[in-house]
């Protein structure tokens, strides 16, 4: 597993993905300038932009690295040489996942440090009305990272059942969009509003079922709490971490089971 992990990491670095991230990270330099367009919340806007930029970069990595990681090996016929080694397919999947995950974590750490510097800078230029909560910022970045690791496991799951990259890439993007909205849809359907009552019961039931199946990504969003220094409930965080562990494990287990049975023709 570690051997797969290491070459996965090496592959990502050799493909100059990190250089790409560095280029995107240059956008951070403009954040205080854009932030100053705000009337009353320069620091707040800077934090919003920084956290969203991190989130966006991690999303790209999760979708494109996670979605092509397994597919590329099949497409380029690497699977024959790699799976001919005395490695179980499960350890291959886990190694691949860990490699991607480690890279995502390194990127989040790197961008997180840049964000701290940018916010310090913006804060120096325009003192904020409310003190910046550094702990909240770190929590926001941490949970963003967890969220995208979960998304990588979803991309892996799609890769295990598909032979092309369409399903992994577009499926993962769809899960990302729906997963961020599922909580609101669920709340709306159970709000007892008049508009809901005209919907057929089947629709409501199907939507509720989807709510329990699709990862609830909105739970990982602590950006507002970081931007406005709001308090974060410890219980909520603990439950979210637990949810993450279980969901990601299930996704990887399913991926491994399906991949074990897959024919390498």
């Amino acid at each position: 597993m570690t051997s797969i992990l290491l070459i996965t990491l090496k592959g990502i670095f050799r493909d100059r993905v990190f250089q790409g991230i560095m280029v995107m990270a240059l956008l951070f330099l403009f954040i205080p300038t854009i932030g100053s367009l705000s009337m009353r919340q320069v620091t707040e806007l800077s934090i919003t932009l920084s956290l969203s930029l991190i989130s966006f970069i991690l999303l790209l990595l999760a979708v494109f690295l996670g979605g092509t990681s397994l597919w590329k090996d099949i497409e380029k016929r690497y699977t024959f040489s790699v799976l001919g080694l005395p490695l179980s397919r499960t350890s291959y999947i886990l190694g691949r996942f860990m490699g991607n995950a480690l890279f995502l974590c390194l990127t989040a750490l790197f961008l997180g440090v840049i964000t701290l510097l940018v916010i310090l800078w913006a804060k120096g230029l325009y003192p904020p009305s409310r003190p910046v909560r550094w702990d909240n910022m770190m929590i926001a970045v941490l949970f963003d990272t967890l969220k995208y690791l979960l998304l990588v496991s979803v991309a892996f799951f799609f890769s295990s059942v598909s032979t092309s990259f369409f399903l992994p890439i577009f499926g993962t993007i769809s899960v990302y969009l729906v997963g961020n909205a599922s909580q609101e849809v669920y709340d709306y359907l159970h709000s007892g509003s008049q508009a809901v009552k005209v919907l057929p019961g089947m629709v409501v039931k199907a939507a509720s079922l989807l709510y329990y199946l699709i990862p609830n990504l909105a739970a990982f969003d602590y950006k507002l709490q970081a931007v406005y220094g709001l308090d974060i409930a410890g219980r909520g965080m603990a439950l979210t971490v637990l949810y993450w562990v279980i969901y990601t494990t299930i996704m990887l287990a399913l991926t491994a089971v399906i991949y074990e049975r897959r024919e390498m023709k």
Partner: peptide
């Protein structure tokens, strides 16, 4: 095992690839 028309991780060098294989064994 030598696969038909083999392909190996092309971003690695031969030596790195052998290191990977050795580790797997």
């Amino acid at each position: 095992y030598l696969p038909e028309n083999p392909a190996f991780y092309e971003y690695l060098s031969a030596q790195e690839y052998l290191t990977f294989v050795g580790r797997a064994f």
